[in-house]
Simulated assay, not measured.
Amino acid sequence: MSDTAPTARVIDGKAYAAALRARIARAVETLKLRHNLQPGLAVVIVGEDPASQIYVRNKGEQTHEAGMRSDTHRLDASTTEEQLLSLIDALNGDPHIHGILVQLPLPAHIDATKVLAAIDPDKDVDGFHIINVGRLAAGLPGLVPCTPLGCLMLLKDLHGDLTGKRAVVIGRSNIVGKPMAQLLLGESCTVTIAHSRTRDLPAVCREADILVAAVGRPEMVKADWIKPGATVIDVGINRVPSLDPVKAAEGKTRVVGDVDFKEAAAVAGAVTPVPGGVGPMTIACLLLNTYTSACRAAGIEPELPELAA
């Protein structure tokens, strides 16, 4: 299978995300001119986790580029849970902040569930608050987790109407799997949530017109798991040893998804690469949620310009 030439369309999430951020920037400029309103995003990071530091810096840069206010609160790893909750309470009451994001993971002495529950649901741009989880399940307006929202946008850009399609989501996390299934249900797909205990998982996956892999297992999904012509969305981000033996011996790594891309590309109709697929959509959708939250707080209907030709 590895020698078979790729036939699938490669879904360029990086390009779509760039276009989406440009649309958001134009919408933000309109908000400023017409309503004197600048959306504001506050990001809170506790400790010195290197990956989190890079991610937070990227969020700040892209927030500024979109014309939004960006406040980053960097707290020592010794920060107490009480101190963090006090900061969140202040941000909840700040009229210039429309989105609050607490970067995970948090230090072990802080209860992440308690912290996330303290965020005002209408400022919860990660979409993790139980109120927003309930809104999504009930089909009510709310803030949706960024990664599943990005996946759905890529799917609708590719297919338009998703009505009647059979979708399989591998993974049942609160961050991706469950909300992804809810979003696909909302688009009138027939949805199956599969996981590590699903019997004959490859056979279940072969039923899917849309296959979303979000399990965190490197290149688990092989060609014979995929229905010919299906659309495959790979949410996985896994670090594995470099293919170069010398680099691997030096501890160098490469990033792969949950899908064996080369195999999938020979069978699927369309597939997202890793990197460059779903990943860039996450921050773009964070900005979209912040824009949406600002509009709702001001009683304004959110309206994005069309994609540039």
Rank of each mutant, 00 (worst) to 15 (best):
C205T: 15
R199P: 04
A208N: 04
V212E: 08
T198F: 03
G236C: 13
W225G: 00
V212N: 09
R239F: 14
V215M: 14
D234T: 09
K227N: 00
I226S: 01
A213N: 06
C205P: 04
L201V: 07
K227S: 01
P218S: 15
I210R: 03
P228Y: 08
G229Y: 11
A203S: 14
A223D: 12
V235T: 06
R217T: 14
E207A: 11
V212R: 09
N238R: 12
G216L: 10
V212Y: 09
R239H: 15
K227V: 00
G216K: 11
C205M: 15
E219P: 10
R197P: 02
P228N: 01
M220I: 07
R217W: 07
C205D: 01
E219T: 12
A203E: 12
V235D: 03
E219F: 08
R199K: 08
P202G: 01
T198A: 04
L201H: 04
V215L: 13
A208E: 00
A230C: 11
P218C: 14
I226Y: 00
L211I: 12
V204R: 04
V212I: 15
K222Q: 15
A208H: 09
M220W: 14
V212D: 03
I237M: 12
A208L: 07
A230E: 04
G216S: 13
I237Q: 06
E207N: 13
W225A: 01
R199L: 04
G216T: 11
D234L: 09
P218N: 14
C205Q: 06
E207R: 14
